[in-house]
Lab assay of single mutants.
Amino acid sequence: HFTSQQLQELEATFQRNRYPDMSTREEIAVWTNLTEARVRVWFKNRRAKWR
């Protein structure tokens, strides 16, 4: 589960860029205190939901 702060950060990034690269995902991981893998999976799932 994600905190509302984490989701806000993830959503804001998603609005700007639906396909963040590795370095962007790592930055998000640092800001949100999540692993890069969790961030990558979140984006994958979010893109699926967005379609």
Rank of each mutant, 00 (worst) to 15 (best):
H1A: 12
H1G: 12
F2K: 03
F2T: 03
F2I: 10
F2G: 02
T3K: 04
S4Y: 13
Q5L: 11
Q5P: 06
Q5G: 08
Q5K: 12
Q6G: 01
Q6T: 06
Q6C: 05
Q6I: 07
Q6H: 04
L7N: 07
L7Q: 07
L7H: 07
Q8K: 13
Q8G: 08
Q8I: 12
E9N: 11
E9I: 15
E9T: 15
E9P: 02
E9V: 15
E9Y: 15
L10K: 00
L10T: 00
L10V: 00
L10N: 00
E11G: 01
A12H: 09
A12W: 10
A12K: 13
A12D: 09
A12N: 10
T13L: 15
T13K: 09
T13M: 15
T13V: 15
T13S: 15
F14W: 05
F14S: 01
F14I: 01
F14Y: 06
F14V: 01
Q15Y: 07
Q15H: 10
Q15E: 09
N17E: 06
N17C: 13
N17S: 06
R18D: 03
R18Y: 06
Y19M: 05
Y19Q: 05
Y19E: 04
Y19A: 04
Y19G: 01
Y19H: 07
Y19I: 03
P20D: 02
P20A: 06
P20R: 01
D21S: 10
D21W: 04
D21Y: 02
M22V: 08
M22I: 09
M22F: 14
M22Y: 14
M22R: 15
M22T: 08
S23I: 11
S23M: 12
S23R: 15
S23Y: 10
S23A: 14
T24N: 06
T24G: 05
T24Q: 14
T24C: 13
R25A: 03
E26G: 07
E26H: 12
E27M: 13
E27C: 14
E27Y: 10
I28Y: 02
I28F: 01
A29V: 01
A29R: 02
A29Y: 03
V30D: 09
V30W: 09
V30G: 11
V30C: 11
V30L: 14
W31L: 15
T32K: 01
T32F: 12
N33T: 05
N33R: 07
N33Q: 10
L34R: 02
L34G: 04
T35G: 03
T35N: 06
T35Y: 02
T35F: 03
E36D: 02
E36P: 07
A37R: 11
A37E: 14
A37Q: 13
R38M: 15
R38G: 08
R38F: 12
R38T: 13
V39P: 00
V39T: 00
V39C: 01
R40D: 07
R40L: 06
V41I: 14
V41C: 13
V41Q: 14
W42F: 04
W42R: 00
W42T: 00
F43R: 00
F43W: 03
F43D: 00
F43Y: 06
F43P: 00
F43G: 00
F43E: 00
K44V: 11
K44E: 12
N45H: 14
N45S: 08
N45G: 07
R46C: 03
R46D: 02
R47S: 02
R47C: 02
R47I: 06
R47T: 03
A48I: 11
A48G: 06
A48R: 14
K49F: 09
K49R: 12
W50R: 06
W50T: 07
W50Y: 08
R51N: 09
R51I: 11
